[in-house]
């Protein structure tokens, strides 16, 4: 198990290094002179030079890259050009919105998808299965940001149960904070839950055709017992893959959804960064998003090993 974790950790590090090279290349190398780019076409040459100094653009590519990476490792993402504050500060504030939103929606999506997928698999071919398959088919087709707009329309505008947007802030209590994240999280979670429930169902059905299920039935297990005691854990393996992939979709989705609800999260930060050509902000937030996807992939790999002893034995 330790060997397995170590080998995954190695590949996590490699992925991070490669990803940082890609981000660095796209943001700092391809545009030519980032300083000139950030200040626009009519910039004063002196201002450009000053910014070049500030960004440390006068060094070699290597020294700039290593400066950037070692800074990030120390928690220093550089100075935002537009906000004139350290980017790490900006990120820290925004993370408190985006991170809870992502995890809340992952939680909701998993909590809904598991039982629903299980019910559909257990009642295969019965009306409840058809109903679940129909609803999830529709759920997959709904763009989450449009679904968010519908939720606003129904629950904020018509029923007035929630605010249409904005974030109450954690300082006003856990409940207030969660309440402002609830609609966005639901909007993110339901389409994902549809996918996950379908994967859960088909994975269970696939597992139920395996020989060891027949063995279990020959031991005297009922269909339901065989499903619960043998199929479930085996069916979890492909489901984990999808949860891992979903996280990457949720991150992307959160960035978009924040715009629907005017939430001050990383998504809003990065779009402001783009419109203000603040490459330092864009670069840092992108790297952070990529880091979280890679980290989740790593965690999913560990979860695989926890579920499947064949992986643990280090092959």
């Amino acid at each position: 198990m330790i060997r397995f974790a170590a080998s995954r950790l190695l590949s996590l590090t490699l992925s991070l290094i490669m990803a940082s090279v890609v981000v660095f290349a796209v943001v700092e190398v391809i545009p030519g002179d980032p300083a000139a780019y950030m200040l626009g076409l009519n910039a004063d040459p002196d201002a450009v030079n000053a910014l070049r100094d500030e960004l440390g653009l006068n060094g070699t590519l290597w020294s700039r890259y290593f400066g950037w990476v070692s800074g990030m490792l120390a928690g220093d993402f550089g100075q935002s050009y537009t906000y004139r504050v350290p980017v790490s500060e900006l990120i820290a504030q925004r993370l408190w919105v985006s991170l809870p939103l992502t995890f809340l929606s992952l939680l909701i999506s998993t909590l809904i998808a598991f039982p629903v997928g299980l019910i559909a698999a257990a009642r295969r071919g019965k009306p409840s299965d058809y109903a679940i398959m129909g609803v999830t088919q529709l759920g997959i087709a709904v763009p989450n940001f449009w679904f968010a707009m519908l939720l606003v329309l129904v629950f904020a505008v018509n029923l007035q149960w929630f605010n249409a947007g904005g974030f109450a802030g954690w300082e006003n209590g856990l409940f207030a904070g969660l309440k402002s994240l609830f609609l966005p999280a639901i909007a993110l979670a339901l389409p994902q839950a549809s996918i996950l429930a379908r994967v859960m169902r088909s994975s269970l059905l696939e597992t139920l055709t395996q020989d060891y299920i027949r063995t279990a039935r020959a031991k005297g297990l009922t269909r339901a017992q065989a499903l619960r005691r043998h199929a479930l854990r085996n069916a979890l393996i492909p489901v984990l893959t999808i949860i891992g992939l979903q996280f990457s979709f949720l991150i992307a989705g959160a960035v978009i959804i924040e715009n629907v609800f005017y939430l001050p999260g990383l998504g809003r930060l990065i779009f402001q960064g783009i419109t203000q050509r603040d490459l330092v902000v864009v670069e840092s937030v992108v790297m952070l998003l990529v880091f979280s996807v890679i980290l989740i992939t790593f965690l999913v790999d560990l979860a695989y090993a926890a579920v499947d002893p064949r992986l643990r034995s280090g092959r």
Binding site: Y212, T215, A216, A218, R310
Partner: peptide, 21 residues
């Protein structure tokens, strides 16, 4: 009755056991 009065084994032992138990 199954497993108690009648037991059964199958042809393919490689897949007849639950791999995660």
């Amino acid at each position: 009755l199954r497993g108690n009065d009648i037991g059964m084994i199958f042809q393919e032992p490689m897949t007849a056991l639950n791999p995660v138990q």
